[in-house]
Amino acid sequence: MRHSRFTAILSALLLAATHVCAFEVESAKFYDAPSGGNLIRIVSTADIEVFEPIILAFQKLHPDIDVDYTVASSTEVMNAIYIDGEPFDLAISSAMDLQTKLANDGYARTYRSTATANLPDWAKWRDQLFAFTQEPAVMVVSDEAFKDIPLPTTREDLIDLLRDHPEHFDGRIGTYDVRTSGLGYLFATQDSRNTGSYWRLTELMGRLNTKLYCCSGQMITDIAEGRLAFAYNVLGSYASSRLKDTPGIRIVPFNDFLSVMLRTALIPKTARNPAAGGVMVDFLATLNTRLELNAQTGLPPISNDIGDLSNAMRPIRLGPGLLVFLDRLQRDTFLRSWSNSMEQE
């Protein structure tokens, strides 16, 4: 019985296909509070360098809370809660679909406060999942590659551009390998939902020998160093933070639509100190009142302005719709189509 349930969870857990053992930790750091005693354990997909300013600001406000910060991949964050039942007090992840699945399958606690009540409706789900950043998927281009070519502003523009200058872009396009990157998969599936041009674009990119990456960082580096002309669906927040010290690159936001990923936090059912988790959720939900942190982390806080459709920004909607692309068959189908388009050899 126990075994069948275990396999059941496994089969539902699609991104965790390769790991059966306990979740893999990338790095961890303990932040001792000045007058500590209260401990909050956070598991997160955000790198320590990115998140540290937030923790320090948090401890300035709450000097009694020690923070134990563990970094893991989005799949491993999911594993930690879903399979291992690790007693984390807060799970932060950029994988909205996995976080939604955690909440949907009953692994999250309900939490309500003034701060969460003030979040826009699209930035929370079930009072269990709380978004605290909005990070669009953008195109990052090399200034050098586009000095004679007009910058595309829509996906249709980009398709025309690739058709007109195949030799210019051949082998010089980068994008996520959606088979290995959860974020890349999220952006790709949302694109496929939002526009009919997605598959044509993928087809074209495949024909032009697009290079596939695991992470935004490497793509930006390759653009800066001239190996790529542009990268498609790069995490905007990451690109912005690299912009300062990386010459020769530029961010091109599309006008037709911008998929906006929401970084979310949830308090797991297994939390030992859910109250501290709640305090951290409140802090994260009010990041828009601490713009200096935005400058330090490059994480744009939730703003009430987007959400209406007059804007090209299209926040990915939290809710059961996200479960669709986690479906095993659906994922198989999508990845097969994607692979067929991308790898045409």
Binding site: G319, G321, L323
Partner: peptide, 11 residues
């Protein structure tokens, strides 16, 4: 091929 709307409509 699980339709997106099948689950999103419930949300």
């Amino acid at each position: 091929e699980l339709p997106y709307s099948a689950l999103s409509m419930l949300g």
